[in-house]
């Protein structure tokens, strides 16, 4: 791409529009925190410019620019509807600057909440992965056992994991241990089912090719069956991960003293909708970030796929 094609894009016009509308007088009687919004938008634009330098592939660069374009347009519409023309109820719909300012103000609390939530998810999920994958491999290898196990899996995964919570509370001492337990259960079944279906669907030609090489049982499992089922295992993991987030945030709204779900629930009870929206956006960002990192990991392990 030429320099011109890289930097002369419509995204920058949307940025300029977002900046220009800040000059309009505020109609809202409440505080609107214009400076926070401007700081945020400038930071975003800085990221866009850095990306324009760094991203080599045309498609990826255009994708990034388009996404930021959407964000600018959304922020513009939001600002106009709230701060500038006061079209919406200002209690339920705070202006964007206020949400950004709130985020900056609460960042220590928010970080603690993220740490708590992500920590629980990582522990429960990893516990599920390290048990479900080896078990799935071993049981999937035996066609008869695998068949029986897939029926049991269907039964157990049909129970919505959230209903384990009351039993978990009776079983375990702290909210944290209950959450880890429930997330473990919620992730275990999809990962286990994914692994088994991966093993059962390994191409027979691949197995034959390994057999004629005289590959012994342990190496067969680790060097052949495991990599051959990896795509399916990751499908199960993705499913487990998304269920985990739904589950944890729900659980946090019911019984926690910290965590991202707790933050949203707590402040909405007080009618503090600026913090509620801040919390929602934070959850979105965290889920996207965790999924993104997980996908990078997946793509690395599956880099051999054509």
């Amino acid at each position: 791409m030429t320099i011109k094609a890289r930097f002369l894009r419509i995204t920058h016009i949307f940025f300029a529009i977002l900046m220009l509308i800040q000059l309009l007088p505020n109609k809202s009687s409440k505080e609107v925190c214009t400076s926070s919004l401007i700081a945020f938008a400038i930071a975003a634009e800085a990221v866009v410019i850095i990306c324009s330098f760094l991203i080599k592939k045309k498609e990826s660069l255009l994708l990034t620019l388009d996404i930021f374009g959407f964000i600018y347009v959304f922020l513009t519409a939001w600002t106009l509807a709230t701060a500038k023309f006061d079209l919406l109820n200002d209690l339920l719909f705070p202006p964007p600057g206020k949400v950004i300012a709130q985020f900056a103000e609460d960042k220590t609390v928010i970080l603690t909440n993220i740490k708590s939530s992500v920590g629980i998810i990582v522990q429960g999920f990893l516990l599920a992965a390290v048990t479900a994958i080896p078990l799935g491999l071993l049981i999937g290898l035996n066609a008869r056992l695998g068949n029986a196990a897939s029926y049991l899996t269907k039964f157990f995964s049909s129970i919505p994991p959230i209903v384990y919570i009351p039993y978990g509370i009776a079983l375990l001492p702290t909210f944290r241990s209950v959450s880890i337990f429930v997330i473990f259960l919620a992730s275990f079944w999809p990962i286990f089912a994914g692994t088994m279906s991966g093993v059962l669907n390994v191409d027979k030609k691949i197995i034959d090719s390994a057999k004629v090489l005289n590959v012994k049982k342990p190496a067969m499992l680790t060097s052949i069956i495991l990599p051959a089922s990896l795509s399916q295992i990751f499908l199960g993991c993705n499913q487990g991960l998304s269920v985990s987030f739904i589950l944890l945030t729900s659980a946090e709204m019911i019984g926690a003293r910290d965590g991202m779900g707790y933050y949203v629930k707590y402040y909405s009870d007080f009618g503090d909708y600026t913090r509620t929206i801040t919390g929602l956006l934070v959850i979105g960002i965290v889920v996207i970030a965790v999924t993104f990192l997980f996908n990078i990991f997946r793509q690395y392990l599956l880099r051999w796929k054509g």
Binding site: D203, K205, I206, D208, S209, A210, K211, V212, L213, N214, S223, I224, P227, A228, L230, W304, K305, G306
Partner: peptide, 19 residues
């Protein structure tokens, strides 16, 4: 059964795609 005195080349899929 298979044995280490023989090696095989198939029409397809002799190689493991992840190696």
């Amino acid at each position: 059964g298979t044995g280490s005195n023989r090696s095989v080349v198939f029409q397809h899929y002799s190689l493991f795609p992840w190696m």
